[in-house]
């Protein structure tokens, strides 16, 4: 098992998520996506809590309150891409935004990926979400060589 490092800033602790965090996680996701999906988050949290070196679910805690979440996974050969870390979700409470919480969580997740032996991190963002795109860009992320395509099949 790769050790998941606990990083402490002045007031914010980044730590592994626990089952007790589920309500806060659901709340943060509602603030970010405006869509409630409790079953999905229960399933994801249970999945990520199983011992697995390839997955990491972190939360940011301040004064015993969860103010942010990030989760990611190491995947190899998805879409032909060599082993790399994927950020699948990131969210910060409205009050916690613009205080570096997202940066701290992403740094911590990147450290986790690095210690697991991967040197690249990827994510996917809705094009219209300029705020989230700006966040990842401000962290040094640039467009990669892939383009997402889709079509209706129903």
């Amino acid at each position: 098992m790769i050790e998941k490092q606990e990083v402490t800033s002045t007031y914010i602790i980044i730590r592994e998520a626990m089952m007790d965090d589920i309500d806060a996680i659901i709340d943060i996701d509602i603030q970010a996506s405006t869509m409630e999906k409790p079953e999905y988050w229960r399933y994801i949290l249970e999945l990520y809590l199983q011992q697995n070196d390839q997955r990491c679910f972190l939360v940011a805690e301040q004064d015993n309150h969860i103010i942010g979440l990030i989760l990611g996974e190491i995947r190899a050969w998805e879409f032909g891409s060599a082993s790399c870390g994927w950020v699948f979700a990131i969210g910060v409470t409205e009050q916690g935004r613009l205080h570096g919480v997202g940066s701290k969580m992403l740094d911590n997740l990147c450290d986790y990926f690095r210690r697991a032996g991967v040197s690249k991190v990827k994510t996917m963002v809705v094009r219209q979400n300029h705020e989230l795109l700006s966040f990842f860009r401000s962290q040094g992320m640039m467009a990669g060589p892939y383009q997402e395509l889709e079509k209706e099949v129903g």
Binding site: R127, Q128, H130, L133, S134, R137, S138, A143
Partner: peptide, 9 residues
């Protein structure tokens, strides 16, 4: 999306 997401900073 690209130009709106890249700040001066």
């Amino acid at each position: 999306a690209t130009l709106n997401s890249i700040s001066i900073d």
